[in-house]
Design a protein around this nucleic acid. Structure first.
Lengths: 243, 243
DNA sequence: CACTGTATGTTCGTTTTCCCACATAAAGAA
DNA sequence: TTCTTTATGTGGGAAAACGAACATACAGTG
């Protein structure tokens, strides 16, 4: 049996939706619909036009880039702090990446049209979405740097922390094979890194389940990339002036 | 003496400024000022608030991420097709990356305030800026993937092509040391890759000067990342409907 | 219970890149 | 010219990651 620790966050609603003014909430909420996403569900394919955007609550979506030779790499993850489908308001309508459910759970679905209208007509929604987009850009940049400079073990730590921050528990349902796809490395590389972490008592895992036992240690073993992204995301989502 | 080929593009004005409606141009152009940037000039530091944004004309700006241990990696380049300083309208005011002049030349400088006002008040400017930002996101994502999966030689080809597309000539003034900083690899790695390319007759170089002799071959030797970014950027900057 | 599919562990040789040290050579300054 | 700085070339050893093949071991199914 895998041990549990007290949860650090209990997401009940999406942070972006929460930040909306009451008036904006009155306009938007009627169009929201709760949807449940299973592990592996593809939210959208590369190049696909989006009919809906999704505001995760307790699930995690992975933005994955898949190359023509089958190689892949995760460029960012989205949880309750963000939204999936920024191409809707950025104007491109689609992106070259794929969005896959990395952790099952609930999200709010909003018709693209509604978001677009609110975005175009109300500076409040615009500011929230654009600041989040900048946070996403930061995450992508940092991923690029991380891919260049850090070891698989460091990246695994970063990845676990990113997931942990978006989940209500310290438990992840995820095989090493899938983690390898996200990090864009071989499965064996993840096995080795995970083995080391387990030996150190940082995590415990078994057949698709990972429990984080020592989060502090995990942060120490991670590269600076995790903390950098977290700091910048927090900065961008704490508003000095009221909306 | 390094040979020259006919130039493929002759940037005379920035593409984003060019796309503005005549009315928007009337509002914006009076605030523009031409500035010359020397190789190595730092446009802004990580975390620095921006007073101006810059629309390159025949120069190239590199968005560089520098880590605490001194390691670095370029996450995107900006030329006449774009703008430096998206944090101004994205709302963050600053980014964790540094902007450095990678190729000397002229750019238009615009006070951040003017851009912000136009962006907030006119959908035309908004659409142009946001679509460009999405193109930039694409470039960053692709860089992340490229860093993970491709060899130094492939990445060097991609990098040369990105630069070439933004210059009026086939000549680059750039040492291998600097290229190594951009790619986030060792100088020796670049020396080796560049040596191979020269042996193949694709490029010719000498002490800080590189001439591309066979662009077609360069594209063949590059990974798919170059073509992907170019295609998506072109898509995002060709507007199906008029502004 | 045995069976089967899936997740993880392990090994070996190879490739790529890294780190370090030093050699060579061109460009500019004195 | 000579000296110095800077750019590039080269080589040896180490580390990290890769590719492939195979071993083990758990979980769910019948």
């Amino acid at each position: 049996m895998l041990p549990r620790t007290s949860q650090t966050v209990t997401p009940t609603i999406n942070r972006l939706l929460y930040q909306l003014t009451p008036e904006a909430q009155d306009r938007i909420f009627p169009h929201l619909r709760q949807v449940y996403m299973q592990l592996g569900d593809v939210i959208y394919e590369a190049g696909e036009e989006l009919d809906y955007v999704y505001f995760p609550v307790d699930n995690i979506i992975s933005l994955l880039y898949v190359m023509s030779d089958g190689g892949s790499a995760e460029i960012a993850v989205v949880g309750f702090e963000g939204v999936v489908g920024i191409a809707v308001f950025m104007g491109g309508e689609s992106t070259p990446s794929r969005a896959v459910t990395q952790s099952a759970g609930w999200a709010y679905r909003l018709p693209a049209r509604e978001l677009k209208d609110e975005f175009n007509q109300h500076p409040g929604m615009r500011m929230i979405m654009l600041r989040y987009t900048q946070a996403l850009i930061t995450q992508m940049s940092q991923t690029a740097v991380c891919n260049r400079h850090h070891t698989i073990e460091q990246q695994l730590c970063r990845w676990l922390l990113l997931s942990l921050d978006r989940l209500p528990t310290n438990q992840l349902s995820m095989t090493q094979e899938l983690i390898a796809n996200m990090l864009g490395v071989r499965r064996e590389g993840v096995t080795e890194a995970a083995g080391k972490l387990q030996k150190k008592g940082v995590i415990e895992y078994s057949r698709g389940h990972i429990a984080v036992l020592d989060r502090e240690m995990l942060e120490r073993l991670s590269c600076e990339c995790y903390a950098e992204v977290k700091r910048e995301t927090d900065r961008l989502q704490s508003y000095p002036e009221p909306l």
